[in-house]
Write a protein that binds this DNA or RNA. Structure first.
Length: 590
RNA sequence: GGACCCGUAGCUCAGCUGGAUAGAGCGCUGCCCUCCGAAGGCAGAGGUCGAAGGUUCGAAUCCUUUCGGGUCCGCCA
């Protein structure tokens, strides 16, 4: 049977309905659901099936519900089924069926909740930071959400490819090269000041962080003063860009990417593939994409309307190469070429997506910062156009993270060079706390990252609370001598409501994986684990009051094994969930 | 001016893609414990789900309008 007991019971419901209503077509039951009722008093599960098919069956839902309930009573899993309200059927499961989930969990171990393989490969693109400096807190949230989402989709049975798109082709990278060149001149001992240098270059000196110092030193090591122009006033000075630009740019991007990969490794985030924007352009992917769209009549030369309301000062009508994004739901058509003929960021990203489609993905998912929100529709339009509307693009937007310490906000500014790096954050609170905390909020909600709370050992801190539950499980199992063969332990001793509630919670894990993956919402895993930990701690606390509920019972080896099975299963489900989040479970606190 | 996201308990947030009497933690109130199965436990008060219409058996959830907050808006990525 399916690991998902809700899906399992839904099968029972639909089979019963087919018997009751043989004349209905098979798809009449598609909208029928079996889910946990809000009100626990209503039982373990409730189905709306009678409400959903009542109209098609031309029967009053309440009557149908009564007949359905009667049938369901005969199912071996069901202790009680009763019609309720406007046509629900409430189902209470037999306790031995609930207990029987434990062997299933223990047999699967950390794989519990793993969905059956799904057809079609899914590409998840995340992080994709410019290679212009170390990762900071903002990147970090996208990295964690993306990595956990990829893990979640894999858990749900998808074949997932984790991808990083390197934005190494634009003006930012040019500015970066100029900034690195400044560090090179410094390494050679120039007396030029930072401000004097900023005057000499286009756009000014944008990246002033000292993380470029090693790049300058490396350039000086490899090239000596060959990339500079001797100058009588301040020693080594700036040479013509054609003498050094390509070399400096390449070296700098390579070193920045190495640094970003190190940062990602420190966070435990991994990618299967890194795609370079510059490489895509160099191999002509942009031209191919444009030709493909042009072949469908989706490219034209035209002039856009000025934006309504606030018109930019320097706005003037300009003829551009435009993509008919409006044919696919966007508000306006979007430009593909800059005036120098190179692709806009959008155009290059279309090339990126053409590349993905050519690699045969059935679904594309992106994790972007909320500042890219306005960009979603045009990209979806492009993917729809390139794929003939067959491949969906889902975008998960992550909102800003405000880091707080001692109640004070900590601000960051990447280009100024003074900001909280990912490394700072990891050094301060640890990788696992960073990852878990980043998932304790819906991606699309702003988040306050409280450095003090995250390391606090209290109920307020979900990281601690969940890890503590796992540590307690492990502590008990160690004390019991690491028992084996618990999957075959007799379980009759488990009858306390708190024990059964814990099993019910664990039994909901496969269903949660499925639903969270479909909704692209990894934060649900964190909330589930928090609830699971609460159920476990509750039982633990009851054991402090009532010795008969303790896990290890002197003189009752059978009852002890039943409870150890419960504890081992709890530990397994916590590990299963933490595994999706990329958080390592701990054996003991501290 | 327009697009997108968000408005749920005093605070921070969930709410399982439309289900029944809307939940959790913190804070507050009242009891209990001070136990290494430690880094507390139990119970209670607290809500017209921003507002107004609509869709239907049924709406915090979907649609329209509106108020408030955020993000963004032609060759930045």
């Amino acid at each position: 049977m399916s690991q998902d007991i809700f899906a399992h019971l839904r099968g029972r419901v639909i089979a019963a309905l087919r018997e009751l209503l043989p004349e209905l077509p098979g798809d009449a039951f598609a909208r029928a659901t079996v889910e946990p009722p809000r009100e626990a008093a209503h039982g373990d599960m409730a189905t709306n099936a009678a409400l959903v098919v009542g109209k098609a069956a031309r029967q009053p839902p309440q009557k149908l519900a009564a007949a359905l309930a009667e049938r369901l009573m005969q199912a071996p899993e069901v202790a009680e089924a009763a019609p309720a309200g406007p046509g629900f059927v409430n189902i209470r499961l037999r306790e031995d069926f609930i207990r029987a989930q434990l062997p299933a969990i223990l047999t699967a171990g950390e794989d519990y909740g793993q969905g059956a393989p799904k057809p079609g490969r899914v590409n998840v693109e995340y992080v994709s930071a410019n290679p212009t400096g170390p990762m900071h807190v903002g990147h970090c949230r996208g990295a964690v959400v993306g990595d956990a989402l990829a893990g979640l989709l894999a858990k749900a049975g998808h074949d997932v490819t984790r991808e990083y798109y390197i934005n190494d082709a634009g003006a930012q990278v040019q500015a970066l090269a100029y900034a690195a060149y400044w560090r090179y001149l410094q390494a050679l001992g120039t007396t030029l000041t930072e401000d004097e240098y900023a005057q000499l270059i286009p756009g000014g000196l944008q990246y002033r962080g000292d993380y470029l110092v090693p790049v300058g030193e490396a350039l000086a090591r490899h090239h000596g003063d060959a990339l500079a122009e001797a100058n009588t006033v301040h020693g080594p000075g700036m040479a013509g860009p054609d003498r050094w630009f390509a070399e400096v740019r390449e070296t700098t991007v390579a070193m920045m990417m190495a640094m970003i990969r190190d940062d990602l490794a420190a966070l435990g985030v991994r990618h299967d593939i890194f795609v370079s924007e510059a490489a895509l352009v160099a191999e002509g992917k942009l031209d191919q994409a444009e030709a493909k769209l042009a072949g469908q009549g989706l490219i034209y030369r035209g002039v856009l309307e000025p934006p309504k309301g606030k018109t930019p000062e320097d706005w003037e009508p300009r003829e551009q190469t435009l993509f008919r994004a409006t044919d696919f739901g966007d508000e306006v058509d979007r430009p593909l070429r800059k005036s120098d003929g190179s692709g806009t960021y959008f155009a290059n990203d279309i090339a990126n997506h053409l590349g993905k489609l050519e690699r045969g993905f059935a679904a594309l998912v992106h994790v972007w910062g909320a500042d890219h929100g306005g960009y979603v529709k045009r990209m979806q339009a492009a993917v729809a156009a390139l794929s003939g509307r067959t491949v969906p693009l889902d975008v998960v937007l992550t909102q800003i993270v405000h880091v707080v310490k001692d109640g004070q906000p900590v601000r960051m500014s990447k280009r100024a060079g003074s900001y909280i790096t990912l490394r700072d954050l990891i050094d301060e609170v640890g990788r696992d706390a960073v990852r878990f905390t980043m998932l304790t909020r819906k991606a699309d909600a702003q988040m306050e990252f409280d450095l003090d709370l995250v390391v606090q050992q209290s109920r307020d801190n979900p990281v601690f609370y969940v890890q503590y539950a796992h540590a307690r499980c492990r502590s008990v199992l160690r004390a019991a001598g690491e028992p084996t063969g618990l999957a075959t332990a007799p379980l009759d001793a488990l009858s306390d409501p708190a024990e059964l509630a814990l099993i019910r919670r664990m039994a909901a894990w496969p269903r949660l994986v499925e639903a969270a993956a479909a909704a692209r919402e990894p934060h649900r895993v964190a909330f589930f684990l928090n609830d699971l930990a609460a159920d476990f701690h509750l039982l633990w606390n009851k054991g402090r009051e009532d010795a008969s509920l303790r896990f290890i019972q002197e003189g009752d080896p059978e009852g002890t094994r039943a409870r150890l099975a419960l504890v081992a299963a709890t530990a397994a489900v916590i590990r299963s969930g933490l595994g999706v989040m990329g958080v390592a479970p701990v054996e003991e606190m501290r």
